[in-house]
Amino acid sequence: MAMISTLSAKSAALRLSFYGPGGTLFGIQIVNLLLTIMTLGIYSFWGKVRVRKYLYSQTEFSGDRFTYHGTGKELFIGALKAFAIVIVFWVTVVVLAKLVGPMAVLLVYPVILVAIPYALYGTMRYIMSRSSWRGIRFSFRGDLKECMKTYIGGVLLTLLTLGLYYPYFHTKMRRYWINNTYFGNIPFHYDGEGKDLFGSFVLAVLLTIPTLYLYWFWYAAKVGRYDWSRTKFSGGQFESTVTGGALLGLSLTNLLLLILTLGLAFPWVIVRSLKFQFHYLTLHGELGLSKIQQDARGLRIGATGEELAGALDVGSALG
């Protein structure tokens, strides 16, 4: 039981490890592809679940694997609902365009501005409620109104300030996402401030052209290190040592792999990226795991938000 005793070792650095070989993921995705073709697309939701279950069960933290509890049926129902929402919306726009005139199409922008935070919120709630470690569920307990306010206000302010507000928007959103995320009954904690990133952000904007956009990798690394240095769980402090050069190397090699294999290397790219993230991320300090209690809120949360996020192409924005 060596793996369990590491828990009590007080300030040893803990890290996430990913064990899965890319080849196994490739096999899963090929079989998913076949079944998806055979069922004219319907299986893709169940396929997505198989991939997630694999990625979770191959990820270990402190001697235990993560578990994904979502089902294909939930995703399928969520997709049907998201599809219905999109259809109803388009029909409304078309009808309005007939009644009011072509200006009604402009309605699309405010609706999308509302739909994106709603979808992100739904994704976060769904994914967290379906994730567990040591049998304890994660959960997201944010308030939808606050999400809307922070997101819409942030987008508008960013537009008004010609992008200068962006670092503040980033930290505010992250504060909202992280501080409302719980493991069992204990919340995560993030207290990043936009002003700490503002200087680097302006520098990155200025260096965009001279460095042919490459400086953004160093900016991304800096934000990554900063964000994790401001993230805590219970008595534990996260730390990332990622560098811009490493991020650039990962992106270039991934791109090269995909091009050389005509996209077939996609599963390996996923695995490499996960291993990369976990390599640079550590957690120090006393987690106080004995204080943690199951708090199975949100087990009945549906997947509409997530599928709507898919429909709007915003899923990746959560990172």
């Binding site: 998806t36 004219l40 697309g41 319907i42 939701f45 998201a82 388009w90 898919g310 709007l312 192409d313």
Partner: peptide, 17 residues
Amino acid sequence: ILIAALVGDTSGVTSAA
């Protein structure tokens, strides 16, 4: 629509229209 379904991307339905 079929390609959208294959990649599990519902946004394809909109672009398909």
